[in-house]
Amino acid sequence: MSKLIVSPSPHIHSKDSTRSLMLDVVIALIPAVICSVVFYGWQELLVLGVSVASCVLLEWAITKYMLKKPSTIGDFSAVITGILLALNVPYTTPWWVIVIGSIVAIGVAKMTFGGLGQNIWNPALVGRVFLLVSFPTYMTTWSQPQGLFGVDAISGPTPLGTVQEGLMQGATVQELTSAYNYKDLLFANLGGSAGEVCALALLAGFVYLCCRKVIKPWITLSIFATVALTSLIFWGIDPARFTDPAFNLLTGGLILGACFMATDYVTSPMSVWGGVVFGVGIGFLTMMIRYFGSYPEGVSFAILIMNSVVPLLNMWFKQKKFGRK
């Protein structure tokens, strides 16, 4: 003993840190990453590498040269943004498009607001939507998975894209979806952006995060429930025009969005009921965009729109205080 430390209580701290929580999210994403590399091959690995590297480098450069503050890349949040961005774009996306996406995600959506914890919108989604709007060609040319050791890729639209295009040409939903069976959707045998293709791997990560108490399941479950219910109603009214619940749950990045993007701490409400309303909003908006919007896919937009109302949800849904009405 040399000198005693004197500071106010509490004198101990839980083992949780921002870094350990973010690392848990990275771990939870590993099954989906492995899955996408296996199904899409080495090109997907390149997409992941470019995305993660550019996100981390950019955050490091911004903190060092623009903000002149200690680097924050050690908290692993930039790694998560990188992985999520990569899982949100087709594996055929050129590297420079991905770099632009990272600049928008980290540079514009995250660091401009003050870095981790200060941003209003999920950075990876902002990057993704920017690319979708700016480079629609690259972002909507999807390929059938060719596999790690596969042969030539077959280009084609995603299931949701197929359906929307087909409907505009007068076909019925039954005709358009008969090509897909749900086993394929669950086990990733269809075209889509990387994160869309392996529902089971994503769900495994989600279960891991819930078990580790990193996230609570309510946001995700309310999204699933709302999507299922909304599509059940519309499908029940007119199955020729509207796709069925299982199809909607398993396609178009809904699982990736619901499990990993909507549950982002920073951009989701803190309270359980706030989270449920947030999830219902995302689920409903997703279905409205899918059924009536001009884009085949609505999850990204739905999450970003609901991100915007999080401060209000945090104000409205407060926990009951002890001993107060």
Partner: peptide
């Protein structure tokens, strides 16, 4: 570090405060 708005403090508060 920065607050990451995880809400763990609010979950832990036995008085229901934020």
């Amino acid at each position: 570090g920065n607050c990451i708005r995880c809400g763990k403090c609010a979950d832990a508060c036995p008085m229901g405060l934020e």
